[in-house]
Nucleic acid binder design. Structure first.
Lengths: 189, 189
DNA sequence: GATTTCGTGTACCGTTCGGTATAGTATATT
DNA sequence: AATATACTATACCGAACGGTACACGAAATC
């Protein structure tokens, strides 16, 4: 693997486990076994490194969700697919997902938040689209699309954190329950 | 106001808007208009300052929620009270709430997370208790108490963030909708 | 074979970091 | 009046911060 790839991999790991501000550039290059000018040659500065670290994995997530949430007439199925896809991603890319979460809930003024913000807007857009496209056949959703998108993302983020921390177990039954609750409420459990 | 109180107030504001690691001790004392030894006299170190900043407001939140979630036979009412209380708190103490969110989603190994962790466990406990006490009259909840507690907290956190960012509007109707969705699903909106 | 481009190490920059030794001043206690 | 306690400023510490000037070797281009 090239030094550039190694840098991105190590940076992802360190940012994810210790936090962007708590990790020094020196920590990163030491872990790779190189020196600082190499990092600055590839990424310009620390901020640029974070940007490139985020890009690839978040695009994967967005692609997965666009496929899963594609509405083909069955609203419940689309929701279930979306939830399933989200949890699968968070489990498979747990290190990245941990970083995504931290950045997403960082202070708005922080450097870290500025990097993740445009991606989060796209994520919200993608989920909102699902609810919008379901309105024709589910009229009661009308006007609540964005609220539901918010609710679903908040729910999934928090659940996925539980999965990563091994407080929850990922299986088909779990996905069924989360979907069931979201769609039909607590009494349908 | 005493310098100790001023320090806590300013620290809360700075930690909340810029993040714990991004704020230096020097920034804080400069904002108050004093010098570092005063801060270290009262709080020992930066970590101690954060601890004291969190303590008071989080205890208020826990107290509010314990009152609101007290189950007196009407499960739906308890849920609605809890949701309402949570949103009221997040609106009233928005600066603190912003900090709570950031800390809650910080990396597990980070200093910041260690401070908020015990409080979050208490929060989860409080909410779980509500579902547990509702089991006798709502048998279908049995076995899902912790999952529902997780879901509700994740939902409320994300919604409250929307409220603080003025993307959502706080009123009785909003509380009604969130409760309604949580209890009866999307079709009941 | 000469020259340019790419990639990387050595050594260093000024600044800021969290934290402290020490001395002083006010206020309260005796 | 003497003494103790609470609080705060000056001045400093070593370490770590993000970032860079520069030189050098390897590899590709001419």
């Amino acid at each position: 693997m090239s030094n550039k790839e190694k840098l991105k991999e190590i940076a992802l790991e360190l940012f994810s486990t210790r936090g962007y501000n708590a990790v020094g550039v020196q920590d990163i290059v030491d872990s790779v076994g190189i020196t600082k000018p190499t990092l600055y040659y590839y990424f310009g500065n620390k901020h640029g490194l974070l940007t490139e670290v985020i890009k690839k994995d978040f695009d994967t997530l967005l692609g997965d969700l666009q496929l899963a949430s594609d509405y083909k007439g069955d609203f419940v199925k689309s929701i279930r697919n979306t939830i399933s896809s989200f949890f699968k991603f968070s489990t498979k890319h747990s290190i990245f997902f941990r970083l995504y979460l931290t950045l997403s809930y960082s202070p708005q003024e922080s450097e870290a938040y500025q990097v993740i913000r445009p991606y989060n807007l796209k994520l919200k857009e993608t989920i909102t689209k699902l609810f919008v496209s379901a309105v024709p056949s589910n009229g009661n959703l009308k006007g609540h699309e964005e609220m539901l998108s918010n609710a679903l993302i908040g729910l999934l983020n928090h659940y996925a954190l539980g999965l990563i921390n091994k407080e929850l177990e990922f299986n088909e039954h779990f996905i069924y329950q989360v979907s069931q609750h979201f769609m039909h409420g607590v009494y349908a459990l």
